[in-house]
Design a protein around this nucleic acid. Structure first.
Lengths: 228, 228
DNA sequence: CGGTCCTTTGACACAGGTCAAGTAATGTGG
DNA sequence: CCACATTACTTGACCTGTGTCAAAGGACCG
């Protein structure tokens, strides 16, 4: 088995249940690419040539304001798609957080295929709806939650993403920097750090090291995250 | 022509270019409903029976936190669809801002129809992508913009929505309350009011009355909205 | 072992929130 | 059509959570 084959299989799996023929045709148009940490995958406003599926690693997507203010609009984990476009250009930039492996679908070929495989189109619509719902939750977070509530929400989001891959685990990896987290939560690095220390001193979490957190009291974190 | 027919035609138009047969089949499953200002259209977590298209008026969609904090995630204008679901329940509440007319598509019947009309599914996917891009812009606003920048962005958004219906107009109607605007921008009513007064005193806008604003310097508003 | 980068912590500042009063618009019943 | 109540908006004074700036650990790396 060619080393790429395993990730192609995973990318196909992310597309939902498909027939053997559909799988074969999708496999035919896709390619595997890898990115080292901090490598740019594509940039906002660049012509959108491909859609990607994350097969390994973590990706962050973000938008920038002209003066350099940054908003991370999402972290993507294995199984997630990226490459949302707006008039033929990418709507955001994407950067590898960890060593990352992606499956690349050339846009024009994929669109041709979609015309013939309505099932796949349905699946994409389902995923878009799901992302839209997640985007609304993020708006609540950014518009109405306190720093503490945001950080608690973030940790639970990370835990859920981790558990989508493996079994339930209270020890979670935090591969992104404090700055990335801050730009995701609409805070500063310093406030993220202070909130983590605070949650730690309240025994809701334990900071094992900068990149690993032990969730001690999930119910408590959840209560905080929804504002109770 | 039955009074409802005009709005049905408009709702169909919002679905994009369709064949006569497709239009006929869509028309067959839809119904027209109207709501007075401040009437609830549907509530978050209620079983999602229908998808709606706004044909007249303005609708706001919002999510609430258990303690009553509210985030308005969008204002919808004629042509917009609402009824995003998450496991068979609505993902947000929807309320009429002005006297509103909606076209209602029963979800099960619509989904059956979608199976047969892939063109319509494509169109829905296109709209979902567009909304997703808008959601990301809103995240930048909520996470990174100052009060002044948020209010300027809001006014330009309203102007664009107004012009989607009629011709370019510097005099725009603001049908929603200051509280609604605040909950949309992640601010308080007071801060929205102060920011409007400030923009007014800088001669970027003129406040004709509480519900009408004259945009005097659009280029200036745009500069402020993107942070330059 | 020294340099770089990331994170934490502290002291202080300020944008925007809170609370309260006043004013304008809107509606209602006489 | 006018008192009056109600609701929405504006403005002011003050407060607080988070940002800013600065310094001091820690971790990693050649």
């Amino acid at each position: 088995m060619h080393p790429c084959d395993a990730c192609k299989v995973r990318a196909i799996a992310a597309c939902g249940p498909l027939s053997a023929d559909e799988r074969k045709r999708l496999t035919a148009i896709m390619k595997t690419v890898t990115f080292a940490p901090h490598r740019l995958i594509f940039m906002e406003t660049a012509p959108a040539a491909s859609l990607y599926n994350v097969t390994d690693g973590v990706v962050k997507i973000y938008k920038m304001m002209p003066d350099g203010r940054r908003q991370v609009t999402g972290f993507l984990f294995p199984g997630d798609f990226l490459g949302l476009i707006q008039n033929d250009s990418y709507a955001y930039s994407a950067e590898a957080v960890t060593e990352t492996r992606l499956c690349q679908f050339p846009r024009v070929r994929l669109e041709m295929l979609l015309r013939e495989l309505p099932k796949l189109e349905q699946r994409l619509l389902g995923m878009a709806s799901h992302e839209l719902a997640a985007a609304q939750d993020q708006m609540v977070l950014l518009g109405r939650k306190s720093a503490r509530e945001r950080v608690a929400s973030f940790l639970l989001m990370l835990a859920k993403a981790t558990e989508r891959q493996g079994p339930q685990a209270d020890l979670i990896a935090v591969p992104m920097t404090r700055s990335d987290i801050a730009d995701y939560l609409g805070l500063t690095m310093e406030t993220v750090s202070r909130s983590l220390t605070q949650l730690s001193s309240e025994n809701l979490i334990r900071l094992l090291n900068e990149k690993h957190v032990h969730l001690i009291d999930r119910a408590g974190l959840h209560r905080i995250s929804v504002g109770l």
